[in-house]
Design a protein around this nucleic acid. Structure first.
Length: 729
DNA sequence: TACTAATATTTC
DNA sequence: AAATATTAGTAT
């Protein structure tokens, strides 16, 4: 494939060079004689008064006088055609400048500062003259004479690195350079053949088949929590390894945990190549190079791993495909799951979207037969899904200032009796979501964003969960100065903990909330302690919904299942459904079967009914019906488009958006930033559906910001978001 | 009117 | 992204 652009002998002519900046067009440069350039080559070019890197995007027309010259061709692997095509496509789809998208794929050229060898220590000499407990631990930990990293040894012996240093000085340890660790060793597809159930085997085989076919196919792998999705898609990865082709496993950044890596290592014998924001400079470069050479066979990474220069990509996995973390909102706004589908199409490889609670758009695509729908209905090991029940709070009403219904209390008591764990889920941090004055009715509001301030009693502060604003909780009302007149309204986890303590004084309970001091480290400890059965009752926010396995948990109580169903967020129902499905799925993952009780004021709500039925298809059907009833177009259709522009540069985005409008079947308005939401709110433009293609920003925030500058129009505004690149493939 | 700080524009 | 041009906002 040598399509060098030179005519005649050695160079001359022109090339179009794309520069990784916010430029939508490639610039023409003259090629100095003697230089051979082909599309994909990375070059150094002059730009204004300085020089930058760029990529030869295509052959130049040869015309155009007085062009600046390419300075040099850099010694880097060229961007292969597939990646260039992806950059073009993503730029087109997201309305971003081509150069900005190129910047995602083009990590800086290798700087040639030599890699500093990491130093390790080894047990070498006699014990030191003066022995201390800390020194003894360090020596014991280094037993066996193996070379070990300094900080790793300090960690293992739970001493500080100063102790190690002193032992080096004493001659007990010697220092040697650590051998460079393999960045991506070859995984062994048959390292540990997993025991799979009949269903798992069937689905695993189907996925492996897709990999063997080496053609484009999107597969939705839907499996309830605990059904062994990971083990199943590992079978597809194994098949790709056997074929010598590369796989990438995309996951939300937070999901790239030690737990996942351990499971991978247990299955394949080595760790996957890891790509996420915490992987630093040198390692990144080495991994990138290994990927470009095709040596790194499996990469597990966050969304940016999608733009790596794979040499022969044979499989893409998108784990937890419904996760909002796949959306990049700043810079180039893209959804990694959608772009994964695009890349797989370009690479002509299968892509597997795995989730226990697939997003609506993915479900729609599966329903329409565009995606292969593979289901893992059962839990691994024949465990049963928890039984779900609704508690009608209108009939079983807790007393004033209490939030636990008698039914839920009874269930928790029975669990305490049986020495089984219970989880009380309330997706509200803090003590109370609203504080008001009993005398004058003053409500505490955030000065920046008009949201109510949340009472955090442990921190003795009022906090805005929207923007992070914090203020002290006063003792008297700031409006009427009446002392001791402030009352908390509604429950947060802290307040629920209070109730639990009075209701079940003998129980060992713990609150798990992301805003507690101590950070991830403490949280990890606490989750572990819960898993080991050190607590009877866990009170938790959103964070307990994900990932962790509590074998002793047999009851999940949802304090307020209606929470989130009423907000104006177009994805509210979907998100609530997903969170409730996940959190109720925490029950019964051990030996004993589990159950979940959901407290609600509206037991006939379609989302809750679908949830209790245990059939996710019913939720999808309900949403589709609701959409239809609201007069909204079906999913998967580009119905309208709003683009904002705040500068001349963004006006080009306008132009691109206008071109796109020709493809939209329904009404479209392209307006400046100030007018856009207002025009809709005032109803000048009759748009029932707002689509911001691939830029699914938080529309609520967006609208709220503009509403601050304008009077609220009468009548409600219906907003829906619809993002689906499938319409364009 | 001169200077500075904040914003917008340009870069083959 | 970085250099440069433009404009808005102040101090003199």
């Amino acid at each position: 494939m040598d399509d060098a652009l030179d005519e005649g002998q050695g160079g001359g002519g022109t090339v179009e060079v794309l520069i990784p900046l916010g430029l939508d067009q490639a610039y023409s440069y003259a090629v100095p004689s003697g230089l051979k350039l082909a599309p994909g080559d990375v070059v150094q070019v002059p730009l204004g008064p300085r020089e930058t890197v760029g990529v030869v995007w295509e052959a130049g027309s040869g015309r155009g006088g007085n062009l600046k010259k390419v300075v040099a061709k850099l010694d880097m692997p060229p961007l292969d055609p597939a990646l260039r095509k992806l950059v073009d496509w993503v730029a087109w789809y997201t309305l971003a400048a081509k150069g900005s998208v190129l910047a995602l794929a083009l990590k800086r050229p290798p700087d040639d500062t030599p890699e500093r060898p990491k130093l390790g220590v080894r047990l070498a000499g006699a014990p030191p003259a003066r022995m201390t407990p800390a020194r003894a631990r360090a020596i014991a930990a280094a037993e066996g004479g193996l070379l070990i990293g300094k900080s790793a040894l300090a960690e293992a012996a739970s001493v500080s690195t100063a102790v190690i240093d002193s032992l080096v000085d004493a001659g007990t340890f010697c220092v040697e350079p650590l051998p460079q660790e393999a960045i991506a060793a070859r995984p062994d597809p048959d390292h540990a053949i997993p025991q799979l159930s009949y269903d798992q085997r069937a689905v695993g085989d189907a996925l492996a088949d897709l990999v063997r076919k080496q053609s484009w196919q999107v597969a939705l792998l839907e499996g309830v929590t605990g059904s062994g999705k990971t083990e199943v898609y590992f079978e597809a990865v194994a098949e790709a390894i056997r074929l010598g082709r590369q796989s990438v496993i995309l996951m939300p950044e937070i999901a790239l945990t030690a737990q996942f890596i351990d499971r991978f290592e247990a299955r394949f014998g080595v760790r996957p190549g890891l790509w996420h924001s915490a992987v630093s400079g040198r390692r990144r470069e080495r991994l990138q190079a290994a990927i470009a050479r095709g040596e790194a066979l499996v990469v597990a990474g966050a969304r940016s791993a999608l733009f790596l220069p794979y040499r022969d990509l044979g499989l893409i996995i998108v784990d937890e495909e419904h996760e909002a973390a796949y959306k990049q909102e700043d810079g180039v706004a893209y959804h990694a799951r959608d772009m994964a589908v695009v890349r797989s199409k370009i690479e002509n490889a299968p892509v597997v979207l795995a989730s226990a609670t697939p997003s609506l758009e993915t479900r729609v695509n599966a329903e329409r037969g565009r995606y292969l729908h593979l289901k893992l209905p059962e839990r691994y090991g024949g465990r049963e899904l928890p039984t779900l029940g609704l508690v009608d709070l209108r009939k079983d009403k807790p007393e004033r200032g209490r939030w636990l219904s008698s039914q839920l209390i009874k269930a928790v008591e029975a669990n305490l009796e049986a020495k089984e764990q219970s989880l009380l889920f309330l997706n509200r941090r803090g003590y109370a979501p609203l504080t008001l004055c009993r005398d004058c009715g003053h409500r505490f509001q955030c000065p920046n964003c008009s949201a109510w301030l949340v009472d955090h009693r442990f921190r003795r502060a009022l906090v805005c969960h929207h923007c992070g604003h914090v203020e002290r909780r006063p003792h008297e009302c700031p409006a009427c100065h009446q002392p001791e007149s402030l009352v908390a309204c509604g429950p947060g986890v802290e307040r629920l903990a209070e109730e639990v303590a009075t209701q079940f004084p003998q129980a060992r309970s713990i609150v798990l909330s992301s805003d507690f001091p101590g950070g991830t480290e403490r949280l990890k400890q606490e989750l572990m302690a819960v898993a080991e059965g050190e607590f009877d009752i866990v009170i938790g926010t959103q964070l307990v919904a994900k990932g962790h396995n509590f074998p002793g948990m047999t009851l999940v109580g949802v304090i307020d299942a209606d929470l989130g169903l009423t907000s104006g967020d177009p994805r509210a129902a979907e998100r609530t459904f997903q969170v409730l499905r996940q959190v109720t799925g925490r029950a019964g993952r051990g030996e004993k079967p589990g159950r979940a009780l959901l407290q609600t004021h509206d037991p006939s709500h379609p989302v809750l009914k679908a949830l209790v039925s245990g059939d996710p298809e019913r939720f999808y059907a309900a949403e589709t019906a609701a959409r239809e009833a609201a007069g909204l177009p079906p999913f998967g259709r580009l119905a309208g488009l709003i683009v904002s522009a705040n500068s001349q540069g963004e006006a080009e985005t306008h132009a691109r958006a206008l071109a796109r409008c020709a493809e939209a079947p329904a009404g479209v308005a392209v307006l400046g930033p100030a007018e856009a939401p207002l025009a809709i709110l005032r109803g000048r433009h009759r748009m029932r559906l707002i689509v911001r293609t691939a830029r699914e920003i938080n529309l609520q925030d967006y609208l709220r910001a503009w509403l601050k500058r304008a009077p609220r129009p009468k009548g409600s505004v219906r907003v829906a978001v619809d993002v689906d690149p499938q319409s364009f493939l």
